[in-house]
Simulated scan of single mutants.
Amino acid sequence: MKDNDPTDPKGLIREAFRIHGISIYECRSIFVDWALSVPVTDHAPLIEALLARHQGEPHDHPMKVVLTEGLATKPPAGRRGGRAARVP
């Protein structure tokens, strides 16, 4: 069922917080699926909104840990590869 929530259109993050005993590896997989399902290039504002929404969850919940990691980790800017990257 599709949700009208632009921050979590498939309800993946919401459901992850409801799964008892979910592992960090499962949360990372869910996070990747979530990131691919939202049509934005900068996920930080959405992650911040999700963290605010789920602030009442335990701070060590695996999904909260993954969301926090998602804010801290920025992909490297610029080109990744090609001849210019290999040859000094």
Results as ranks from 00 to 15, higher is better:
Met1Cys: 05
Asn4Leu: 04
Asp5Asn: 14
Asp5Glu: 09
Thr7Met: 09
Thr7Cys: 08
Lys10Asp: 06
Lys10Leu: 01
Gly11Val: 02
Arg14Lys: 11
Arg14Glu: 01
Glu15Thr: 05
Phe17Gly: 04
Phe17Trp: 07
Arg18Gln: 11
Arg18Phe: 01
Ile19Thr: 15
Ile19Cys: 10
His20Ile: 09
Ile22Trp: 06
Ile24Trp: 05
Cys27Asp: 03
Cys27Arg: 03
Arg28Gly: 09
Arg28Tyr: 05
Arg28Asp: 03
Ser29Val: 07
Ser29Gly: 10
Ser29Phe: 05
Ser29Glu: 07
Phe31Met: 12
Phe31Leu: 06
Asp33Leu: 13
Trp34Met: 11
Trp34Pro: 12
Ala35Thr: 13
Leu36Gln: 12
Leu36Arg: 13
Ser37Met: 03
Ser37Arg: 01
Ser37Gly: 06
Val38Met: 05
Val40Pro: 13
Val40Arg: 10
Val40Tyr: 06
Asp42Asn: 12
Asp42Lys: 07
His43Pro: 07
His43Met: 13
Ala44Arg: 14
Ala44Gln: 14
Ala44Glu: 09
Leu46Ser: 12
Ile47Glu: 04
Glu48Ile: 04
Glu48Arg: 10
Leu50Pro: 00
Ala52Ile: 00
Gln55Val: 04
Gly56Trp: 00
Gly56Thr: 09
Gly56Leu: 02
Gly56Asn: 03
His59Ser: 02
His59Arg: 08
Asp60Cys: 11
Asp60Arg: 11
Asp60Ile: 05
His61Glu: 02
Pro62Glu: 02
Met63Cys: 01
Met63Lys: 00
Met63Thr: 00
Met63His: 00
Lys64Asn: 07
Val66Phe: 01
Thr68His: 10
Thr68Phe: 08
Glu69His: 09
Gly70His: 13
Gly70Thr: 04
Gly70Ile: 08
Leu71Ser: 05
Leu71Thr: 02
Leu71Ala: 03
Lys74Pro: 14
Ala77Asn: 05
Gly78Ala: 08
Arg79Thr: 11
Arg79Gln: 15
Arg80Cys: 12
Gly82Leu: 05
Arg83Val: 15
Ala84Arg: 15
Ala84Tyr: 15
Ala84Gln: 15
Ala85Thr: 14
Ala85Tyr: 14
Arg86Gly: 14
Arg86Trp: 15
Val87Met: 13
Val87Pro: 05
Val87Thr: 11
Pro88Val: 12
